[in-house]
Simulated assay, not measured.
Amino acid sequence: MTAPLILTLQLEPAAAAHFNQLRRSHYPAYANMVDAHVTLFHRLPADEPRIVDSLSGIGALVSFTLTVNAVQQYTNGVAYTLLSPTLQVFHHSLQQQWLSFLTWRDQQLLRPHITIMNKVTAYKAQQLHQRLTADFVPFEIGATGVQLWRYCKGPWELKETYSFEG
């Protein structure tokens, strides 16, 4: 069976560098196999031609901003949550086009976030959450496209980048 595909949002270089640095600092090294990312779809079938067909047409879309609006603590991790009506509309449009082959998880409402710590104790997650929220102020970052990855049970393999050109 061919490895499934993952679709992520591509962030502007400065934002990607910022979140990658946070992830390198706080994510356990043994488990940190990919850069910081915003997952749009977790498990797409690699042999489905409609995926590439849909993504090939996104060049007409314009780059847009997302608001990094909060630091969220999970049981064993920490993430920054994101708000963007544009992203929600874009994601919903792809969901409708791909509904027949999406997993249950990928059919759900998108809750965009960037995980910077995971697979740690609840105590470590709580400590980082408290540190990051102490002086947190919402800020904006830019989205410049999407990236399609092949899941390889470890580091992901970049298959294609589709930039927002319009």
Rank of each mutant, 00 (worst) to 15 (best):
A3T: 04
A3W: 06
L7N: 09
L7R: 03
L9E: 10
Q10M: 14
Q10A: 15
E12P: 01
A14E: 09
A17S: 14
H18V: 00
Q21S: 09
R23G: 10
R24F: 08
H26N: 15
H26E: 07
H26F: 14
H26P: 06
Y27G: 03
P28M: 03
P28A: 02
P28Q: 01
A29Y: 01
A29L: 04
A29H: 07
Y30T: 05
M33P: 00
A36N: 08
V38S: 10
V38Q: 10
L40P: 05
F41P: 09
H42W: 12
D47C: 07
D47T: 15
P49L: 03
R50S: 11
R50V: 04
S54E: 10
S54G: 11
L55C: 08
G57I: 00
I58Q: 04
V62L: 14
S63N: 15
F64R: 08
L66P: 01
Q72D: 12
Q73V: 13
N76M: 09
Y80E: 02
S84I: 10
T86F: 02
Q88G: 10
Q88V: 13
V89W: 02
V89S: 14
H91C: 05
L94P: 04
Q95W: 07
Q95D: 05
Q95C: 11
W98G: 10
L99D: 13
S100R: 09
L102Y: 01
T103P: 03
R105Y: 12
D106V: 12
Q107I: 00
Q108R: 15
Q108I: 08
L109K: 15
L109T: 15
R111W: 07
P112E: 04
P112G: 02
I114R: 02
N118W: 01
K119T: 03
K119F: 02
V120P: 06
V120M: 03
T121Q: 04
Y123N: 06
A125S: 14
Q127K: 05
Q127T: 07
L128E: 07
L128T: 03
Q130A: 14
A134S: 11
P138E: 11
P138S: 12
E140N: 14
I141W: 09
G145D: 06
G145S: 05
V146R: 03
V146K: 02
V146D: 04
V146I: 09
L148H: 03
Y151K: 12
Y151I: 00
C152H: 12
C152D: 14
P155G: 13
P155L: 04
Y162R: 09
F164R: 07
G166E: 10
G166N: 06
